[in-house]
Simulated scan of single mutants.
Amino acid sequence: MAGGRPRAFDVDEALERALELFWRHGYEGTGVADLAKAMGINPPSLYSAFGNKQELFAKVLDRYAEGPAGYIREALAQPTARMVVERLLRGAAEATTRPDCPPGCLTVQGGLASSSGAEAARDELTRRRTAGEAALRLRLEQAGIDGELPDGVGSADLSRYFATVYQGIAVQAAGGASREQLDRVVDVAMRTWPTGSSGN
């Protein structure tokens, strides 16, 4: 036989199935055998195509960022800081309660409870959450420079506050909160937006 056999599975579809499994059960709660079964391939094919479990998880997180969590990128492109934050929170309320997806957020829940063997995955999730908060902080710092925020408002504290609300939305969704309930949470959070500036 000349040459190797072509892959007998669709890579994109396999990654979607892995994404759902990691999203539903977290990194540590998802075994390689479970992944291989859900993806419709055997473990050797999984390792050959995607690397080890940690490497597969990183690919899944990239896919998650481009797909279900794509609203984050859209939010950061909004023209005012207030619109950025509201789009971020509304997007979280929508994405974490979609009927066609597991409840909650993969990057918030994926590694909350993990043993020493899952430290790399937990660190990767922490890195990504920290990068998201840093991007929000930079946007709010620019808002301060542009006069969108009142003098004396700390962009670091404000970004951490809204990041905490954002992550809380994901936790509430995982516990069964509805889109409508979470939208009301966003309403309350947005009423805390600093007043007294041209950005209101």
Rank of each mutant, 00 (worst) to 15 (best):
F9V: 11
V11I: 13
V11Y: 02
D12A: 14
E13L: 07
E13V: 13
A14W: 12
A14Y: 13
A14E: 06
A14T: 06
E16M: 03
R17L: 13
R17N: 08
A18W: 03
A18N: 05
A18S: 09
A18M: 11
L19F: 12
F22P: 09
W23A: 09
R24S: 15
R24N: 05
H25N: 15
Y27H: 07
Y27G: 05
E28T: 00
E28W: 07
G29D: 07
T30A: 01
T30V: 06
G31F: 03
V32N: 00
A33E: 13
A36P: 04
K37W: 00
K37L: 13
K37H: 12
A38M: 03
M39S: 08
M39Y: 13
G40Q: 09
I41L: 14
I41Q: 03
P44L: 01
S45P: 00
L46D: 04
Y47E: 03
Y47A: 05
S48M: 14
A49N: 09
A49F: 02
A49M: 00
Q54L: 15
Q54R: 11
E55R: 14
L56F: 04
K59S: 15
K59P: 04
V60I: 03
V60D: 08
L61M: 15
D62S: 05
R63C: 04
Y64P: 07
E66W: 01
P68Q: 13
A69P: 02
Y71T: 07
I72W: 13
R73N: 09
E74A: 15
A75P: 08
A75S: 11
A77G: 06
Q78N: 07
P79D: 11
T80M: 10
A81S: 11
R82T: 01
M83R: 15
V85R: 02
E86N: 08
R87F: 01
L88Q: 07
L89Q: 06
R90S: 12
G91M: 08
G91F: 09
A92Y: 08
A95L: 07
T96G: 06
T97E: 01
R98F: 01
R98V: 00
R98Q: 04
P99F: 06
D100P: 02
P102H: 04
G104S: 08
C105Q: 11
C105M: 12
T107K: 06
T107L: 15
G110Q: 02
L112M: 14
A113M: 13
G117A: 05
A118H: 03
A120V: 12
